[in-house]
Design a binder for these strands. Structure first.
Lengths: 92, 92
DNA sequence: TTTATATATTTAAATATTTCGATACATTTT
DNA sequence: AAAATGTATCGAAATATTTAAATATATAAA
């Protein structure tokens, strides 16, 4: 992973609401719908939508349209690549 | 590490200049002075200072005053804790 | 096919971040 | 003690991010 990508992911993770969203996806066992987040976050629907867009744009969260819902899952592979980037920042 | 701390670190890493600074500290073998960064970054001195403050506030970078210079090193321990936090976001 | 539900987009305001010039402070050198 | 050097702070402008109201779109249910 290059620095630009790591920067984007860091930025995506650098917000309290988005961290809660990610933890919620993780907690739910994975597949989670947009509306599930309404219950956890004290935000208007467009705000949640904005955060979801940010997370899916970086691909750290993957979205799949399912009927009129959207199903979200964590991109474990990309998370691993991000972790590897961070490990490289330490001594070899 | 709690989410609040992880958020701060993510935010600190979510900037191209700060990532360059961190990579530069890493590249240099570790101890690096503030003025070393002038050569790498196209930023005014107060801007660099601002970024260094942000990085040291989160403790991801450690500063030690040495004469009229400041010596910077990476906090590998905290980086590890951050990595552990990220690992917990994945499936157990 | 009208109505209801879930999500997305647009627009605008509030807030936060980034940047730099001016200046201050601390230490070292002369 | 004065000058030089390295870093920090203040204040302000430019830019980016976060938020929500209004509205749009897409699918499902009635």
């Amino acid at each position: 992973m290059n620095a630009k990508k790591a920067e984007k992911i860091s930025k995506a993770l650098g917000d309290p609401n988005r961290l809660i969203i990610i933890q919620e996806i993780r907690k739910k066992g994975d597949p989670l719908y947009c509306c599930d987040i309404d219950n956890v976050l004290n935000l208007a629907q467009p705000s949640i939508c904005h955060h979801m867009k940010l997370l899916t744009d970086t691909e750290i969260v993957i979205s799949e349209k399912q009927g009129r819902n959207v199903r979200y899952t964590l991109n474990d592979k990309l998370l691993d690549e991000y972790i590897d980037f961070l490990k490289c920042l330490k001594k070899d």
